[in-house]
Amino acid sequence: MAEPLLSVRNLSARYGDFQALFGVSFDLPAGHVLALIGANGAGKSTLLKTIVGLLPCAPGMILHRGEGIGGMAPDRIARRGIALAPEGRRLFRSLSVEENLVIGGERGRAGPWSLDSLYRLFPILREKRHAPSTSLSGGQQQMVAIARALMSNPEILLLDEVSLGLAPVVIRDVYAALPAIVATGVSVVLVEQDVTRALGVAHSFICLQEGRISLAGAPGAFTRAQITAAYFGT
């Protein structure tokens, strides 16, 4: 069996004094879309932050291509090809739209994504390329955040709360880009409040409940009631 691209092994992590994850394990194969669902405070964002190195953990708890990267410096993890579009977008406010994209790609790898291809993916960004990133609408800012992460041509793309605070029609626009992104072969971990939408695009899913995996598998393998139970912990 081929080695998984990313492997999380018995990961426990704390957020300050608060233990947020307990013994979480899963594999992410290449080219796979994994949805991470769970209620607020279930540990989804903590998991993503730990993977990109913003929160500490033991080296062996996270393996990238078989090598332990847990607790590695975030910039080194980023250069290995793991990119995050963080919750709340967090664009660089003193950088223009284009500068936000350029800085995303400067220390990245070679690949299909460039300013030009991303402007084709999100045409509105070409129009706004010289605007300050703060002047954009929420949906446009989300596109910049995703594009900024893609600029480094990652092999693993982590998307945190992509649709948070966006109007449904805008969410549809953002999600419309997902198939083109997945088609380039990148693996995606998707954190999403909207369970139906997340399960609709994912090959498999993990449901977190109070820091533990309560359910995992392919979306079609469970009934709606089973997923709801795993989500809310009834």
Binding site: V52, P74, R79, R93, I103
Partner: peptide, 19 residues
């Protein structure tokens, strides 16, 4: 750009591969 990005948000700037 690295200066400005780090000044704006030092945490996220690291995710751009910036030490």
């Amino acid at each position: 750009r690295a200066f400005r990005a780090t000044s704006d948000d030092a945490e996220i700037a690291q995710l751009m591969g910036l030490d």
